[in-house]
Design a protein around this nucleic acid. Structure first.
Lengths: 349, 349
DNA sequence: GAAGAATGTTAGATCGATCTAATTGAAATG
DNA sequence: CATTTCAATTAGATCGATCTAACATTCTTC
């Protein structure tokens, strides 16, 4: 049998000439094996810098582009994270995302954002897709209670998850969120310090963990300050200016109207302020109003709104750090990271 | 040589039992070939529904998870888009992103977001990474002039690009953005209609395409209305409240102060309003102020701000539609899609 | 009933990087 | 000098889906 020196001429694709340069091509050009070239792209210390330089030069010369897809298949890993958010258009999440980017960006991780539009089915569809994409980890801002199932799917697929802002009971994921309890204590203490004794609370929808925590925080802070909580001063409302406004109107039109109103968040506080204007009251004068979140508008209103600030950027950074840690050490204990809020005292109180 | 009936027993990985179920497993379970199973996952019409159902059942039974990475390698394609933004924390981009999600979400495309933090080097690093990831297409909100190079890299890699908001000359990418020219005409017409004759313009940084367009729009609209443009009434400023405020102070303290001021955008208009308050003037009374963008705050200020609204959500949707079209038809002509702004007349004018 | 079309299915090669285990040659050791 | 150790390199298998080209069957059609 004659050795036909059959060189398996690298098949150039199609007519287009649009072949991608592979590690094989680089290796041939540099006079090394593909294995060596592979070690070079990954900056392995097994390769002496002599060889390293030569191979890098070949890459440059040929216009080599690393093929992530191939690497992903082989290693059964990706350097991609998933971020599942209820509503991207909410500026809070935008800032959160920037915190995450900030922490992950340089670490060669890319982030896939997906919007569930507050729907659990949508969320589950997105999560299956993230699993198919084999993301290295995921941030999750749960849509509702039953997203527990979705979360399980992720964990079962071996994908570490960090919950943000909304906590889910009985779930073994990490969590990063604000200390709602403390936030409310700050507000109550602040108002009590200003001499307010008759404080009302307009809370958010009770199904959310943050609603519950803030509500409980309010009650316990009132108790600490030896202040009475009248049942008539406790209200729940949807998270919208309009809803809060109608709640506030009822409170304000009473004979014994409260001297201060704490709201679940800033948006609702704006509703309350509008209600006051309607009643001919000046927020911060006859009745104090305070909110929660410190969204950008809160400094712009007249009067400006006293509120509690939770640093979304910071939460994003912490969540990212935690997720990256879990990724590099899968056996790492799940953390529950609580971020301290800060009181921003302004004119409305 | 005895045939050892060596069945290459499917290698179950590691001790963990954490093997992934592959199409081979599904095929074996359903009693078909891998090829058939593959056609089934992709809902090919070549497969009769009888077989389809059986294979699907096997997938269900085995807990099969589609491996995107493998498909990506084989097909040399991904169903991933890249979105490169200068600053995610800007709420405008958040809304834009939600528009994009809205349009792409159901089409099985996922979007990778990346923040360039307004840096061109960062941008170029991100773009190489997107190319390595082999994204099917990309949205790009250019950081500056020299991002032209980055854009070329994408186009050279055969990745269709849609520019958003900021246009780059001499570049063959699609573009979606507002009609800045028309927007300014609307503002000028509006003010002229109210009887203003002495109108000042505080523009943005001249390097940006939108700055130039709005500036030119202003000039041409003034001409159309037969209004004189005083040089002293033309100013440029950085995009910040403070910068615009100091520009406005100079304008307002003049003997012949203008009766109306048009600002490059809303943020700067707020600065101008603050300057007026400082001078003891009421915006909308002695002097009118108008902005551009219609950011959420503009309805909240007192007085509320007259402005021109560009629908970010809509721009996102259009950009996504255009990108998807380019992806499915690479030879499609590049579009330049200009979105009509709308005038929002409020109290400040 | 033979030729052709249509339908359903499949074997085997393939995408491009990574990993394992092995090989080489040189240096170090006894 | 024989043996071990080490650094540098590499051949070949592998990840899991997709694609090409073919193979069986069954169904038409004249």
């Amino acid at each position: 049998m004659t050795e036909q020196t059959e060189r398996p001429v690298k098949k150039r694709r199609k007519g287009k000439g649009k072949t991608s340069v592979t590690l094989d091509d680089v290796a041939a050009h540099a006079g090394v094996s593909r294995s060596t070239a592979s070690l070079v792209v990954r900056d392995s210390k097994l390769i002496p810098k002599q060889t390293h330089k030569r191979v890098r030069a070949s890459m440059q010369a040929l216009g080599y582009v690393y093929n992530q897809s191939a690497a992903n298949l082989r290693t059964q890993k990706t350097r991609t994270l998933g971020m599942v958010i209820a509503d991207i258009s909410n500026p809070f999440y935008a800032v959160l995302a920037s915190g995450i980017e900030n922490e992950c960006g340089d670490k060669k991780f890319m982030t896939i954002f997906a919007d569930t539009a507050e729907s659990v089915e949508q969320e589950s569809r997105i999560i299956s897709r993230l699993i198919e994409h084999n993301v290295a980890g995921a941030f999750l801002c749960p849509s509702g209670e039953n997203s527990a199932k979705n979360l399980e799917a992720l964990e079962k697929a071996g994908i570490p998850v960090v919950l943000i802002m909304r906590y889910l009971e009985d779930i073994s994921a990490s969590y990063v969120g604000p200390d709602n309890h403390l936030g409310l204590r700050m507000l109550v203490d602040h108002l009590a310090g200003k001499g307010h004794r008759d404080i009302a609370y307009i809370g958010g929808p009770p199904r959310k963990s943050s609603s519950r925590e803030r509500y409980e925080g309010f009650l316990s802070a009132m108790k600490r300050n030896d202040l009475e909580v009248k049942d008539s001063n406790l209200r729940a409302s949807a998270i919208s200016r309009a809803a809060a406004m109608s709640e506030a109107l009822e409170l304000l039109q009473r004979e014994d109207r409260p001297s201060a109103i704490i709201c679940y968040n800033d948006v609702m506080a704006f509703g309350v302020m509008l209600a006051m204007l309607k009643c001919g009251l000046t927020p911060g004068k006859e009745v104090a109003v305070v909110g929660f979140d410190n969204i950008p508008e809160s400094s712009l209103w007249t009067p400006s709104l006293t509120t509690v600030s939770i640093d979304a950027q910071n939460i994003g950074r912490l969540a990212a750090a935690e997720l990256l840690a879990r990724i590099s050490d899968p056996d790492r204990q799940r953390q529950r990271i609580i971020v301290q809020p800060t009181l921003i005292a302004r004119e409305s109180s």
